[in-house]
């Protein structure tokens, strides 16, 4: 075994991640070689020091108050759905009434149609751009 292998075993021993056989090998070497034992003591000391590290205090301790509950999440989704559906219905109905109305002339109807068509095309282009970005996003494989 190389020294690197022994170093790794010592780390595994420190973290209690070794098999019984490897634990015995490490313990035997610590008995036979005081420097190996000293190395273990240093690592153990280091581990304790890291576990004792603290942070500057964080004022936010009630994380549960910040986390959304199921009710508010469902209500938000339902709210958006109702809002979008109602808006689309109103716009569609208003446009239909406008088109069949006899009071507006063909020029105005064509202009309004153009505005709606333009908005529709802009919306499609934005959606398409978002789709392309989502497919080429370098971070899309980051798991959440």
């Amino acid at each position: 075994m190389t020294e690197t292998d022994w170093d790794q075993l010592l780390t595994g021993y420190l973290d209690n991640e070794l098999t019984q056989q490897d634990r015995q090998r490490v313990e035997q070497r610590m008995i036979n070689e005081p420097t190996y034992r000293a190395q273990f003591d240093d690592l153990k000391s280091l581990q304790t020091d890291i576990a004792d590290l603290d942070f500057q205090p964080n004022k936010t301790t009630q994380w549960s108050e910040l986390a959304p509950d199921v009710t508010s999440r469902s209500a938000r989704s339902l709210g958006w759905l109702t809002y979008i559906a109602s808006t689309l219905f109103l716009v569609g109905y208003g446009f239909y009434e406008f088109i069949i109305a006899e009071t507006a002339n063909a020029f105005v109807k064509t202009a309004v149609l153009g505005i709606l068509l333009g908005l529709g095309l802009l919306l499609i282009s934005v959606i398409k751009q978002r789709l392309v970005e989502s497919k080429t996003d370098r971070y899309k494989d980051v798991q959440i």
Binding site: N58, T61, A67
Partner: peptide, 26 residues
């Protein structure tokens, strides 16, 4: 709520250790 508070503290600690910024970690 108790579990979420504990998770929040652990998550905050890890994010803070990586970012070094309280607001971002929060």
């Amino acid at each position: 709520d108790q579990t979420i508070n504990a998770l929040g503290q652990s998550g905050y600690a890890l994010s803070f250790q990586l970012l070094g910024n309280h607001q971002d970690a929060e």
